[in-house]
Amino acid sequence: MGNRVLIVDDAAFMRMMIKDIFTKNGYEVVAEAADGKQAVEKYQEVRPDLVTLDITMPEMDGIEALKKIREADVNARIIMCSAMGQQAMVIDAIQAGAKDFIVKPFQADRVIEAVKKALA
């Protein structure tokens, strides 16, 4: 069972919150990125089992990063993170290959449920 995670969010406190949820549930956070461009680079570098990807970020947004990561690895397991009211973007993300999405503020049980589903 894979449990190496790459966390991507432009807000450091969001990365910290989700990292806390992962570590408490036995997942290893192998890298973090603050924008989509870094996400694509880090993915190539660390080859995580799972990526949590924020939708709205500077440089390159989450949807664009999702497409680039999936181009490089069709088996990439990616969960999108979005704030409330971004349903259209979430649909775009699922169509682009995201396994699931979680809504901010994060609820630990929902995060872990999405992770287990994505890694299954």
Score class of each variant (00 low, 15 high):
M17F: 13
V103K: 10
D100C: 05
V74R: 10
I78L: 09
F106H: 04
A83H: 04
E71M: 15
A31R: 07
V115G: 06
Q95T: 11
M80I: 13
V40A: 00
V30L: 10
K104I: 13
A93W: 02
C81F: 06
E64S: 14
A93K: 02
A33P: 01
D73C: 11
G62K: 07
K24Q: 13
P105I: 06
I91S: 15
E113N: 15
M16T: 14
V51D: 00
I79P: 01
K37T: 12
M14K: 07
G2W: 07
A108D: 08
R70D: 03
G85D: 08
N75H: 09
K117L: 09
R4N: 05
D61T: 05
L50A: 09
M16E: 12
K99L: 14
L66H: 03
D73R: 09
S82F: 14
E64L: 13
M17T: 13
M84G: 12
T23F: 14
R15L: 04
R15Y: 10
I112Y: 10
R110A: 12
K24F: 06
D73I: 09
L119W: 08
A12N: 10
A65S: 02
D49S: 10
V29L: 15
C81V: 08
D49L: 13
F22E: 00
V46L: 12
I69F: 03
N25M: 09
L53Y: 04
F106C: 04
A11C: 15
E64M: 11
G2M: 09
A83E: 08
N25K: 08
I55P: 02
Y43L: 05
A83L: 06
R70N: 11
V40M: 06
L6K: 01
D10G: 07
D100L: 04
V111G: 05
M84F: 14
A120P: 10
R4T: 06
V8C: 03
I18F: 00
Q87R: 15
I94D: 02
K99N: 12
K68V: 01
F101D: 01
M84V: 15
Y27D: 05
E113T: 13
R70H: 11
I7W: 02
T56E: 13
K68R: 09
G26L: 06
Q38V: 08
E28M: 09
I79H: 02
Y27M: 12
A96R: 12
F106V: 04
V30D: 07
A33I: 01
E64A: 14
D61R: 08
E28Q: 15
I79E: 02
N75I: 12
D10R: 09
R77F: 01
D20K: 13
I79M: 08
V40E: 01
A12S: 12
